[in-house]
């Protein structure tokens, strides 16, 4: 049954993609199509990385409310970025090759995130504690980010300032090629790990009994999550609640936590919301820049609903 629902999601996602590419084509069609294709590629990557990283993160932490961004991972990414500017100076930073910078930022994020989160995941910490730690991490890194922002030269600051809130309209297309390598690698690794993820969901003891090396596997998954968060944050900026919304919806559509179904469903749901929403806002509502705000608002509502009424346990 979940196969039929997946097919339905896939159809809807395809429809959104076609609509995004074709509605309102005018002028130099070849040029417009190329422009849209680049943007579509970025939106697809963001969908994939947010959906997969959120599913994996929720499985590892064993709850439906935490997401990488609620745990402050994207704040951590921005902090790492600012740290690089601070250490290298704006000129040095700006002079660096964009791909190289991105690579460096990813490594910084993976190291920081794994260092901070693995101790908590060794033994599954309690949800309340994780949530609290996440909020504190988030605030800490945002404050460190603004502290560094004040310390660096104002000119240097301008180098990174552009990217501190989500904007689905203005994506960093210069990073697309490099990001797509990461995204594709992420898809392959996540898909190959789908059975392992099902076992991880049973908890540390049962998973160990079934032959999983818990610490090693969880650390590896966290590295993957960090890389995917880096991709989406670099491309469109931080998004707080989108992942939560997408996974909560996908879980209700396919009605299973089996990763072979849930991961594709979450990705397709993300594509529908992001690409479909972008099309809708661009052509019907005429203001594509507000999509981010609307998604965050709805996602925030979903977060509150899950928090208050509890996710289906």
């Amino acid at each position: 049954m979940s196969e039929r629902r997946l097919l339905f999601l896939a159809g809807a996602a395809l429809l959104c993609i076609v609509a995004f590419m074709t509605i309102g084509l005018r002028g130099n069609i070849g040029f417009v199509l190329a422009l849209r294709a680049t943007k579509l590629a970025a939106l697809l990557q963001v969908s994939v990385s947010i959906a997969i990283s959120t599913v994996i993160f929720q499985t590892v932490t064993n709850n439906r409310i935490l997401t990488p961004s609620i745990m402050g991972l994207d704040a951590l990414y921005l902090f790492g970025q600012m740290l690089l500017v601070f250490l290298l100076g704006g000129l040095g930073y700006a002079a660096l090759d964009a791909q190289l910078k991105f690579g460096g930022e990813i490594v910084v994020l993976m190291a920081l995130a794994t260092g901070l989160l693995s101790p908590m995941l060794r033994r599954r910490a309690e949800m309340g504690l994780m949530l609290l730690a996440g909020i504190i991490f988030g605030i800490l890194f945002r404050s460190l980010h603004s502290l560094l922002a004040r310390l660096v030269d104002p000119n240097d600051f301008a180098v990174v300032q552009g990217a501190s809130f989500a904007n689905f309209n203005d994506v960093r297309t210069d990073l697309l090629a490099f990001a797509s390598i990461l995204t594709i690698a992420g898809i392959v690794i996540a898909w190959r790990a789908r059975h392992v993820l099902d076992v991880i969901a049973l908890g540390a003891d049962t998973a160990t009994g079934l032959g999983i090396s818990w610490s090693r596997t969880v650390t590896g998954l966290l590295l993957l999550v960090s890389a995917l968060v880096a991709v989406s944050t670099a491309l469109v900026g931080p998004v707080a609640f989108f992942g939560l919304l997408v996974v909560a919806l996908a879980e209700r559509v396919v009605d299973t936590r089996s990763h072979a179904a849930l991961m594709p469903a979450a990705v397709l749901t993300a594509v529908i919301i992001l690409v479909g929403g972008q099309t809708l806002f661009q052509h019907a509502l005429g203001s594509s820049s507000t999509l981010g705000v609307v998604i965050e608002f709805v996602g925030g509502l979903a977060f509150l609903v899950l928090l208050v009424f509890g996710s289906r346990k």
Binding site: L202, T206, G209, L210, G211, R312, K313
Partner: peptide, 17 residues
């Protein structure tokens, strides 16, 4: 080890669905 030894714990926890 998981192919030669299985354990049933006293307090197994479950995931949903």
């Amino acid at each position: 080890l998981a192919r030669i030894l299985a354990i049933l714990r006293q307090d197994s926890i479950f995931t949903s669905r």
